[in-house]
């Protein structure tokens, strides 16, 4: 029993941070969409648009949380979880913004999520082999 096994809890602090980040990202996008309706080109219109400013606030916090999560978790863990924001945005588009959603658009999101999952898988493989690979390259 002395053997130390590197076991992490299933839901780590990093994963919770990413989840929080997905909600804030989605909230930011919805606020930006609402703000964009009255937005015109120009700094005054931009910086006096309350939803846009609130959206920036959400997005900045979301990015900070994501960076914090990345200091704790691998990209291959963070990527797929962060892609949940696509689902929240889809749901918010339907129920809050009352947008019309076609089956194909939902299917598109599904394919994107699958793609991000594949990317995570591909990135993980790299992590596993990275050490031997880099050692070879680093050798003079």
């Amino acid at each position: 029993m002395n053997q130390k096994i590197n076991m992490k809890p299933y839901v780590t602090q990093g994963i919770l941070l990413v989840f929080l980040s997905t909600f804030l990202t989605a909230t930011g996008q919805v606020l930006w969409k609402i703000g964009s309706k009255t937005l015109e080109v120009g700094a005054i219109s931009f910086f006096t648009n309350i939803p846009v400013l609130l959206g920036i606030f959400c997005y900045v916090i979301a990015v900070v949380l994501l960076i914090l999560a990345l200091t704790k978790e691998d990209l291959s863990v963070v990527y797929p979880i962060y892609s949940a924001s696509y689902i929240w945005v889809l749901l918010a588009s339907a129920y809050l913004l009352k947008e019309e959603i076609h089956l194909l658009n939902g299917a598109g999101i599904f394919l994107i999520l699958l793609g991000i999952g594949f990317l995570a898988k591909g990135s993980k493989k790299r992590m596993l082999h990275a050490n031997t690979h880099e050692d070879k390259e680093a050798a003079p």
Partner: peptide, 21 residues
């Protein structure tokens, strides 16, 4: 960073998914 089949699959799926826009 090395390329691998998973990443190729990711490119194809994301590209098709986005094109549904």
């Amino acid at each position: 960073e090395p390329m691998n089949p998973w990443k190729w699959a990711a490119i194809i799926f994301i590209a098709i998914g986005v094109s549904f826009v």
